[in-house]
Amino acid sequence: MVNAAAATQQMLDLFDIKGIVHFGIAGNVNDSLSIGDVTIPKQFAHTGIWSWLNPSAPSIPDAVAHLDVARYNVPKGEGANLLGSFAYHSEQFFSELGKPNTARPLVWAQTSQQWLDLAANLEGMELQQCVNSSLCLPKKPKLVVGLRGSSANIFVDNAAYRDFLIRNFGVSSVDMESAAVVMTSLSNGFPVVVIRGLSDMAGGQSGENAIQIFGSLAAQNAVKVVVQFIKTLP
C-alpha cells in the first residue's frame, strides 16, 4: 500500500498527467462474479487499518467494523478466545482541496464518476475465456462497473475472512494496492479509475487457489478493458 501510494505521488509530481488509470488482478469475494470477469469499482476501502483490542477493555465505538475471533471457534461458541477482536478504522484523508494539514476520516474513496460513466459504456465487450486451447473457463467473462473493492497489505485466501469482508463491507474484490492509488489521486485532485481482472476466489474455492492457473487470463482481460477505456477518453 505504501509503495503504491508513493509511486502514484511520484508520477503526479514528475509528469504531466491528466489522471490515473490503475489496473491489475484481484481476488473475487462476490459469488455473482466469476474468475476472468473484470470489475471497475466505484469505491474502495482500506481494510488494513485495525486495532487488536484488549479482550478486557471496552470496544471502540466509532470503529467501522469488528472481527470477533471467538466467532470462529471450533466447536462454535465454546471456550474463551484470548485473541479477542479487531476494530477496523477509517483512513485519515488529507486533500489539497481541504483545510491545510487537516485530515478527515474516510472509509470509502470514490473513483471518478465521469470516468465510471465512460467505463459503463464498455459493459458487454468481448473478453478472453481460454488460457489456451485445452483450458477454458466454464462461461464467458464479463465486465462489471460500479461495485465496491477493498485493499490491504494482505493476500486473502481464506473463506471465513472472505465472508467477513463481503458481510461487513459489501465489497466484491480484494487487492493490495487500489485503495492507496485512489486516495493518493484524490488527495492531489486528479481523476482515477481502477480496472481489475478477477484471478481467484480469495479462499472461496475448494482446493488450491486458482491464481496460478487463471492469473494471466485475468491480467489479459484487465488490459483489454484498459485499452478500450483509454480510447473513450476525450
Rank of each mutant, 00 (worst) to 15 (best):
M1D: 12
M1I: 11
V2M: 14
V2T: 14
A5F: 01
A6D: 06
M11E: 04
M11P: 01
M11Y: 13
D16I: 06
V21R: 04
H22E: 00
G24Q: 02
I25M: 04
G27L: 12
N28G: 08
V29M: 10
N30Y: 10
S34T: 13
G36F: 01
Q43C: 11
A45L: 12
H46T: 09
G48F: 15
I49L: 13
W50L: 12
W50V: 07
W52A: 07
L53K: 00
P55D: 03
S56A: 15
P58A: 13
I60A: 01
A63V: 05
V64C: 02
H66F: 15
H66Q: 02
H66P: 01
V69P: 03
V69R: 00
R71I: 01
Y72C: 00
K76M: 01
G77H: 12
A80C: 09
A80I: 08
S85Y: 02
H89K: 03
H89N: 09
H89D: 08
S90F: 00
F94Y: 15
F94C: 07
F94P: 06
G98N: 14
G98Y: 10
A103W: 08
A103Q: 02
R104E: 14
S112L: 06
Q114C: 10
Q114N: 15
Q114I: 11
D117K: 14
A119D: 07
L122R: 03
G124F: 14
E126N: 14
L127I: 04
S133M: 06
S134V: 11
L135S: 12
P138F: 00
K142Y: 12
V144E: 09
G146F: 07
L147W: 05
L147Y: 03
R148W: 05
S150Y: 04
S150H: 07
A152W: 01
V156S: 07
D157W: 05
N158D: 10
L165G: 04
N168I: 05
D175A: 10
D175K: 03
D175H: 07
E177K: 07
S178V: 01
V182R: 00
V182K: 06
T184K: 06
L186D: 00
L186Q: 02
S187C: 05
F190Q: 15
V192H: 07
I195D: 02
I195G: 09
R196H: 08
R196M: 02
L198R: 05
D200I: 03
A202Q: 01
A202N: 04
G204I: 00
Q205G: 01
S206N: 10
G207T: 10
G207F: 15
I211M: 08
F214T: 00
A218W: 10
Q228I: 04
